[in-house]
Computed example of a mutant assay.
Amino acid sequence: MTDLEFVTTHRRYLHAHPELSMNEFNTTRYIKEVLNSLNIEYTTPLNTGVIVELDGNSDTTIGFRADIDALPIHEENDTEYRSLTDGVMHACGHDGHTAALLLFVKRCHDLKNNGLLKHNCVFIFQPSEETMAGAKQLIDAWGGSMKMDAVFGVHLMPDEDTGLYLYRDDEITASATEYRFYITGQSSHVAQKHKGVSAVEALMYVAREVSQIQQYHLDGLNRNIVHVGQMNAGEAINTVASNAYLEGTIRTYEADDLNTVTRQMDKIRQSAQLLYGVDVALKFNEGYPATKNSPELKTVVDQAVKNINGTSVLNDKPYLFGEDFSFYREIAPSYFIFVGAKDDSKGFNSSLHTARFDFDEHVLMNVADYFEEIVKVF
């Protein structure tokens, strides 16, 4: 089996059998089966996900990460390997990341058997990137045994042409924090609406004020998003609404900006209660920090891309995606890049998290080649 056949076979199986965050049991089983067929040992610190450690010829240890979970999206592609699970799809390329890392593990295992693996390598098949911060859970579970000198990660990017490698020092993706307002009023018949306490009235106020935070309370030169994603209210057409709900996401690069947003939201919560007589609860999730690339690793990345005849693109600004690769920076210097996967001639140009996202498996060779050069250059 050629390397291209290897990644194509495994990627297409994974694509047809997607699983949501922290439920990647079949995916984990499949990864183990592939590793078993290659006589490669592994560990499983969590219920899902796999870690492989290979000893090389130095005291340096380099980590490489792939995420393995899918999204709650119904696939609209008509391919032989389309998702077999209604409402679940690998719409973010994690099937490709996993297949590429499997190929890289296979290559490194061959190098080790021939005494040619330059450094110790850790291969992280990580669950739950899309939700619940699988990276953080894995780091906490693995504990002190996760000692590495650097960690590298990639993400396919269907908005950029195949052959491009996109990165920058410091911030490369944003922090991602979810917020939720729960508003409780008092119901009454619309004919006696003065006896009720309208959660709808408070909801309109909260939505309006939240939408103004970015414009009036954050530095206009910084890149931030304060997004209202969903809201609903009421129980019947002829009653005063007793309950309302609003949720959204915050994307920032600076911790001070995130603190400004959360403080302002709490002021909105308090003022809504005073103005409208409702009870308002405000909850934030822990969120993902901004992914920040360690500048001291850039020369390694530059040389690796050059060695595989890739085209480096140094982004002048970060992406506003959230990415839990950010947590690996807590344990080692890290560097995260985007690998172009767009090919208009073949119809591969649908963006991430869309129902028609797909790519040519040749791009997975680019990922494996890049990782292999990292080991050689480091």
Rank of each mutant, 00 (worst) to 15 (best):
L221R: 13
T252H: 02
A233F: 09
V300E: 02
T249D: 08
A233G: 09
T299F: 06
S294P: 06
L297V: 13
E247P: 05
K298L: 12
G229P: 07
V313P: 04
A202G: 04
T262L: 04
S198C: 02
K195L: 12
Y288W: 13
T291K: 03
L282Q: 06
N309D: 15
D219A: 11
G310K: 05
L275P: 04
T239V: 13
V226F: 00
G310R: 01
H194V: 02
P295D: 00
R251G: 11
A199W: 05
M204L: 15
A236M: 11
N232V: 05
G220S: 13
S188L: 06
G248F: 09
Q215P: 02
T260S: 10
Y179K: 02
S198M: 00
M204I: 05
V278R: 01
V210F: 03
Y276D: 06
D257K: 07
Q273H: 07
G196A: 09
P295Q: 06
N315H: 06
K298V: 12
V210A: 10
V197R: 05
Y216M: 03
Q264N: 15
F181Y: 09
E209K: 11
M265N: 00
S271C: 08
K292P: 03
H227T: 06
Y205C: 01
Q214H: 12
K283C: 01
L203T: 11
Y205H: 05
T249F: 02
Y276T: 14
Q186R: 08
L314P: 03
R208F: 01
G220E: 13
T299L: 11
V200W: 04
M204N: 07
Y276R: 09
L297Y: 12
K298I: 10
Q273R: 10
L314Q: 13
Y288P: 07
I250A: 00
E209R: 14
T311L: 05
K298S: 15
Y253V: 05
V197C: 04
L218V: 15
T311D: 10
S198P: 02
R223P: 03
A255L: 11
E247C: 14
Q230W: 14
T239C: 05
A199R: 04
S188M: 05
K267D: 04
A233E: 04
Y216T: 12
T299S: 13
R223G: 01
E235G: 01
E247V: 14
L218T: 15
L258N: 10
G234N: 07
L275Q: 13
K193T: 00
S312Q: 14
V261P: 01
A290D: 11
T252C: 12
N315E: 10
T311V: 15
V210H: 00
I268K: 03
H189T: 07
K298G: 13
I268T: 05
K267E: 03
Y205R: 07
S271I: 08
F284V: 14
I250Y: 08
